[in-house]
Design a protein around this nucleic acid. Structure first.
Length: 221
DNA sequence: CACCAGGCAAGTA
DNA sequence: TACTTGCATGGT
């Protein structure tokens, strides 16, 4: 990957451009699978900086373990995660997630991750508050399974560069990535992180700065 | 001051 | 099915 040669696969060419421009992203920040899972819920429609504050609160109170979080009243959890915004609903969503792991995987996160990709995704999606992006983020970044994460940035960057249809949906867009990329967890990990990096610099909603974007004319072979 | 950030669910028509 | 709205703090 990223040999410097221009790749004939358009999506891999995008990856090569971004990889050459930005270098390794080292996602996902988080010291444990539990921390990554919690972060995946907390970052819903929320700046990552604020998620880090919420996680720091849990760590400071020595509450970042499955048993602590599982037994903690939802109202108390909400106070710990307050800086991440939407704290009441996110506290309930985290409780829903822990309850599913308790019910279906004996309270062991490792058992969830030992399940098949499709099986674990189904159970994650059944949790109220876990949608496709959150589920795939947990599967890719915590479980290290080949689930390609789609987010608003992915859609914005690729449609703005006219690499995909403007009105595509989550699963169609994800399928395009799965169809054109080798099934490689570290590639999926890095690619998603690189898309976020380029979007933050060049593809903000309000200020589209397209000059000097590393993806200019990537569609031409 | 307005706008946005690594979504999701529920309500409406 | 296709919009719209609530959820909420903190940075620019």
């Amino acid at each position: 990957m990223g040999t410097g040669e221009e790749n004939s696969n358009l999506f891999l060419r995008v990856f090569d451009r971004l990889s050459a421009h930005y270098g390794p992203q080292n996602w996902w920040p988080g010291e444990s699978n539990l921390e990554i899972m919690v972060g995946a819920v907390l970052t819903q429609n929320t700046n990552w900086i604020n998620v880090e504050k919420a996680i720091a609160n849990l760590k400071k109170g020595d509450q970042l373990s499955f048993s602590c979080l599982q037994s903690m009243p939802v109202k108390e959890l909400a106070e710990y995660i307050r800086p991440a915004g939407y704290y009441n609903i996110k506290a309930q969503r985290l409780k829903n997630l822990f309850q599913m792991i308790a019910d279906k995987y004996e309270g062991e996160i490792s058992f969830l991750f030992e399940d098949s990709l499709d099986g674990s995704r189904e159970n994650l999606l059944r949790v109220k508050g876990v949608g496709p992006e959150t589920a795939d983020a947990i599967l890719l970044y915590a479980a290290k399974k080949p689930a390609f994460v789609i987010d608003t940035y992915t859609h914005r960057v690729f449609s703005r560069h006219q690499l995909v249809e403007e009105d595509t949906d989550y699963y169609s867009l994800q399928q395009e990535f799965l169809d054109s990329l080798p099934e490689d967890v570290s590639l999926f990990n890095e690619f998603h992180a690189l898309i976020v990096a380029v979007a933050k610099e060049f593809c903000k909603k309000k200020k589209p700065r397209c000059s000097n974007c590393p993806l200019q004319r990537v569609e031409e072979k």
